[in-house]
C-alpha cells in the first residue's frame, strides 16, 4: 500500500507545471524515504531530478518500493482538476496498474477522486556524481526567469560568466547583443531578494536558452534559485519545493565544435 497526503496540494500542481514541458512521461520511485523522479528530456540534453521527502507529507505510507510510470500530460490534466487550496492524496495498491488522486477541499465538503492508468517505462537512471562546484550563484527566481526571457530575444544561447566581480549573462544574435550583470547584494531587507555568489574559481559556460526557459517554469515553487557551475560539466539549476524537497535540472553545456 502506498499513500501520500499533502495538505499544501498546490506544491504538487506546481511540480507538474515545472516538468511537463520538458518530459512527456516519467517514473515516480516511491520508497519509505519519499518519492523521487529522475528523467532525461527526449533529446538527452537535460536531466530532471525531483525529490519529495516522506517527512514533508502530512501522511506518508509506503509498505513496498513502488515504481509508478506516468504519462505526465495525463497527470497534469488530473492535477488541474484540483483547486489550489485542495489537499492532495496519491494512493496505490502494491503491484497496482493504477494510481488514485484524491482532492479534498479545505472544508472537506467536496471530495473528488481520479484514477489514472500507470505505464511500464523502461527508463535509464543516470548516476550523478557528488561535485564541489566552482561557482554557486543564488538569486531571486523571478530575476533569473526574467534574464532568461529577455536574453532569449537575442540568440539561442546564453553565456553565463561568473567571476569575483559578479555574474554576467550574455546573448548575441542577428539583432545585436545583450548583457546583464548582477553583483552580489550588499544588504537586503528580505533574504529571498539577495544575490549571493560563492566562487572558488571563475567559470564561463554556454547554455541553450530553450532549456533554461523550460527550467524557469519552476519559478512559482520558490523565491530563490541556485545555479551551480564548474568548467566543462552540466549546470545545475535548483529550486526548493516548499520545505518538502527540491527539483534539480542538469543542463549539458554547449561546447566548442
Amino acid at each position: 500500500m502506498f499513500e501520500a497526503r499533502l495538505v499544501q496540494g498546490s506544491l504538487l500542481k506546481k511540480v507538474l507545471d515545472a516538468i511537463k514541458e520538458l518530459l512527456n512521461e516519467a517514473s515516480w520511485d516511491c520508497a519509505d524515504s519519499g518519492i523521487q523522479l529522475q528523467a532525461m528530456d527526449n533529446s538527452h540534453v537535460s536531466l530532471v531530478s525531483v525529490n519529495l521527502r516522506a517527512e514533508g507529507f502530512d501522511k506518508y505510507r509506503c509498505d513496498r518500493n513502488l515504481i509508478m510510470g506516468m504519462d505526465l500530460t495525463s497527470m497534469s490534466k488530473i492535477l488541474k482538476c484540483a483547486a489550489n487550496d485542495d489537499i492532495i492524496t496519491m494512493k496505490a495498491q502494491d503491484n497496482a496498474d493504477t494510481v488514485t488522486f484524491i482532492f479534498e477541499s479545505p472544508s472537506q465538503e467536496k471530495v473528488s477522486d481520479y484514477e489514472m492508468k500507470l505505464m511500464n517505462l523502461d527508463q535509464d537512471h543516470l548516476g550523478i556524481p557528488e561535485t564541489d562546484y566552482a561557482c554557486v550563484i543564488k538569486l531571486p527566481s523571478g530575476e533569473f526567469a526574467r534574464i532568461c526571457r529577455d536574453l532569449s530575444n537575442f540568440g539561442e544561447s546564453i553565456v553565463i560568466a561568473c567571476s569575483k566581480e559578479g555574474v554576467k549573462f550574455s546573448a548575441a544574435g542577428d539583432i545585436g547583443t545583450g548583457n546583464i550583470k548582477l553583483a552580489q547584494t550588499s544588504s537586503v531587507d528580505k533574504e529571498e531578494e539577495a544575490v549571493i555568489i560563492e566562487m572558488q574559481e571563475p567559470v564561463t559556460l554556454t547554455f541553450a536558452c530553450r532549456y533554461l526557459n523550460m527550467f524557469t517554469k519552476a519559478t512559482p515553487l520558490s523565491p530563490q534559485v541556485s545555479l551551480s557551475m564548474s568548467p566543462d560539466v552540466p549546470l545545475v539549476v535548483e529550486y526548493s519545493i516548499g520545505d518538502i524537497g527540491q527539483i534539480q535540472y542538469f543542463l549539458a553545456p554547449k561546447i566548442d565544435d
Binding site: M40, H44, D124, H125, L126, G127, F250, A252, D257
Partner: peptide, 14 residues
Amino acid sequence: KKKQSNITNFFSKK
C-alpha cells in the same frame, strides 16, 4: 561555433 553536448556524455548509466 559551439554545439550542444548531451547529458549522457557527463553522467553514466546506473
